[in-house]
Design a protein around this nucleic acid. Structure first.
Lengths: 154, 154
DNA sequence: CGCTTATTGTTCCATTTGGAACAATATTGA
DNA sequence: TCAATATTGTTCCAAATGGAACAATAAGCG
């Protein structure tokens, strides 16, 4: 029995009361998917979040600069720089100087990088399915449409 | 003109391609609201994110333990412990030993803490409105309903 | 009762993070 | 042309972060 008869506060109740309820819900769901997924990836595969974001970007564009990745992900440039060095060291990406601009380097993903990306993105997708499994297919579609609309208008 | 005729990659395009699109959209919108809001709060009011989460929790419950706050927010206990000490030092919360349990302390928010919470939550709410302003009232409702449903089923 | 286990809050410390300054290169504009 | 300004990627460093160990107290159980 609870000492003070004080009910233990529950996150769901709390979420319903917060002044910025939509942002709180967005944040809660995001964390429910992202945090456990990246923790598992870090533990099992030794890849940290900024490192994976680099692989993710490079797997969707044939060539990018570090600056591009910084803009795509919103992470600061020094974080990307560190990630680039680590992924170069383990051979998941390659780097070549840009002949037409001595400041920047052209980054590309390697075969092993792609394989790793496939593995990691599948884990995150799984986690996403778990968290959103309470919605029907129709609701999933509606949600995606609304999120997309809000995102593009931002 | 672009050197290589290589179009500068845009975050919106990227979001549409990602394998875990729903999670990516959730994360993008969350960051669009939360990150700039907390940056401004930190800059203007000197309150960091875990400190505000503490005030936020305490403004919705008459009394909580540090452990309660940790569970509500998902932050580790040492982060909450630090936040408690800082908020005590500036008088935004108060702490009293629990007479019935010598391990825990009963935390409450003060008048100044409430005032600060009102100010900060309003900033975040504003930022939320900006980001979600592309949706109609109807769509906003649908979005909240879907998010809530997904959150409770988690 | 006592002994073992659990819980709370704190401290310690290694790692992560991101702002700021920097060198190298490119671009702009008088 | 060339001086001033901007951009890219890196390094440096102070601050934030979170796991783990810890002391104090409580709860469970023989």
């Amino acid at each position: 029995m609870n000492k003070q008869n004080r009910p233990r506060p529950e996150p769901e109740d709390f979420l319903a009361r917060v002044e910025f309820r939509d942002a709180a819900l967005l944040s809660f769901l995001t964390s429910s998917i992202i945090v456990p997924a990246y923790d598992a990836v870090k533990r099992d595969l030794g890849i940290a979040r900024p490192e994976y974001m680099l692989l993710l970007c490079l797997s969707h564009y044939p060539v990018l600069t570090a600056q591009d990745v910084s803009r795509l992900t919103g992470r600061p440039r020094n974080s990307i720089s560190r990630a680039v060095h680590r992924m170069l060291a383990v051979g998941h990406i390659e780097r070549a100087p840009d002949p037409s601009d001595g400041r920047q380097a052209r980054l590309t993903i390697t075969q092993s990088g792609r394989a790793l990306h496939a593995q990691i993105s599948e884990r995150i997708r799984q986690r996403q399915e778990n968290v959103l499994s309470g919605l029907t297919a129709r609701e999933r579609e509606d949600l995606a449409r609304l999120l997309r609309k809000a995102a593009v208008s931002t």
